[in-house]
């Protein structure tokens, strides 16, 4: 991008943060996995399948966190013309999609022993499935144009449209779920879950979060370098 969108300062900050984020993520993963797999007791009802929660819940949280930060970045790019916002959105999208896919996979794996089937049209799982399509749509749209700037602009608009629709989709899926399947299959204990389970969950959530920051910084650096390559190639052309 042109010198008026000088990312040099951002790169300095990012490179400073990167090792810390990576280190924190490694530590949290180690601690989380140890506590989650070894130290915490199996659930009296679900047995050991409850350990899947330590992956499923952080993944669900990260899929929603990533999409909302992308929507904010899209607003920043469209409204305040912040040049780096759309680089962030494009960098974060694959991560968000990965988290969503992971959430769906572990969701069905977690529920399968109880439900007896691999997929249940539970309200939350369905909303995450729709979110997954929103991610795929964004990624496909951003790369569908020859001019990357054009792709980013269209992607930003789609993110804002998506952000407006996410609550509507969530509400309509909940509404639809109550119409067709009165009792939801199982209710996670929420704040009442045992402390021994809460700690690994928080650690794994922190691990996912710091992992996200570390990798998104890498992807932003790659995005900026790719943009620079495109500018140079255009410069060569004439």
């Amino acid at each position: 991008m042109h010198r008026f969108a000088n990312p040099a300062r951002f790169l300095k900050i990012a490179n400073a943060v990167l090792p810390w984020a990576a280190g924190l993520s490694a530590v949290c993963f180690a601690a989380g996995l140890y506590l989650g797999l070894f130290a915490s007791p199996p659930d009296y009802q679900q047995g050991d399948t409850v350990r899947i929660m330590y992956i499923h819940v952080p993944a669900a949280w990260m899929s929603m966190f990533t999409y909302s930060t992308m929507a904010v970045a899209a607003a920043a790019a469209l409204v305040w013309k912040h040049p780096l916002a759309e680089v962030y959105a494009k960098a974060a999208a694959p991560l968000g999609a990965g988290f969503t896919a992971l959430c769906l996979l572990t969701g069905s794996l977690w529920g399968a022993p109880m439900w007896g089937t691999w997929w249940v049209w539970d309200a939350r799982l369905t909303s995450v499935l729709v979110l997954f399509f929103l991610y795929l749509g964004y990624m496909a749209l951003v790369d569908a144009f020859d001019d990357p700037a054009r792709g980013n602009k269209a992607g930003n608009i789609l993110l804002l449209v998506g952000a407006v629709n996410v609550p509507i989709i969530k509400f309509s899926v909940e509404w639809w779920n109550t119409l067709h399947q009165p009792a939801s299959v199982f209710r996670l204990g929420g704040p009442t879950i045992a402390a021994s389970m809460l700690w690994p969950l928080l650690l794994m959530a922190a691990a996912f979060q710091s992992y996200f920051f570390a990798v998104v910084i890498l992807r932003i650096r790659a995005g900026l370098a790719a943009r620079r390559v495109q500018t140079l190639r255009l410069g060569q052309a004439n």
């Binding site: 042109h2 010198r3 000088n6 790169l11 410069g235």
Partner: peptide, 8 residues
Amino acid sequence: QDGAEDAA
């Protein structure tokens, strides 16, 4: 140096 496309 500080020209049009530096440190993008």
